[in-house]
Design a protein around this nucleic acid. Structure first.
Length: 106
DNA sequence: GTGCTGACACAGG
DNA sequence: ACCTGTGCCAGCA
């Protein structure tokens, strides 16, 4: 039986733990960073074992929030000073990927 | 083996 | 900014 997270899951969680406060990575970024698997695999890992890490620092490539946890995530972003992207109305549209994406990539 | 599902990404409209 | 279709890939019935 596999009573513990598979090796791949451990790798994903470890990368997540390395993301500094106020920064984020997309699912695809993590997959590419590991050089293994794909965005959907990273998403599956987060859905099953992401509860113990900074899950809000892993989001969609376009900066949109995790559906169903927007309120929770927004609280964290404001707390960490994560660069946000707003609409003209001032409503939070998502994370400003240009600035918040980690590691810095030119 | 076969088909559906999913915490995705990307291009179009 | 939102929705839709297509591509991708591992898990599961």
């Amino acid at each position: 039986m596999t009573a513990h997270p598979p090796v791949y899951a451990e790798r994903v969680l470890e990368v997540t733990e390395r993301i500094p406060p106020g920064r984020v990575m997309s699912y695809g970024d993590i997959a590419e960073y590991l050089g293994e698997g794909g965005p959907r695999q990273v998403g599956r890992v987060m859905s099953q074992w992401g509860g113990g890490v900074a899950w809000w620092r892993v989001i969609h490539a376009d900066g949109s929030f995790l559906a169903g946890h927007e309120r929770e995530a927004l609280g964290r972003y404001l707390e960490e000073g994560t660069p946000l992207r707003r609409t003209r109305d001032g409503a939070v549209a998502g994370v400003n990927m240009r600035q918040a994406r980690w590691p810095d990539h030119p």
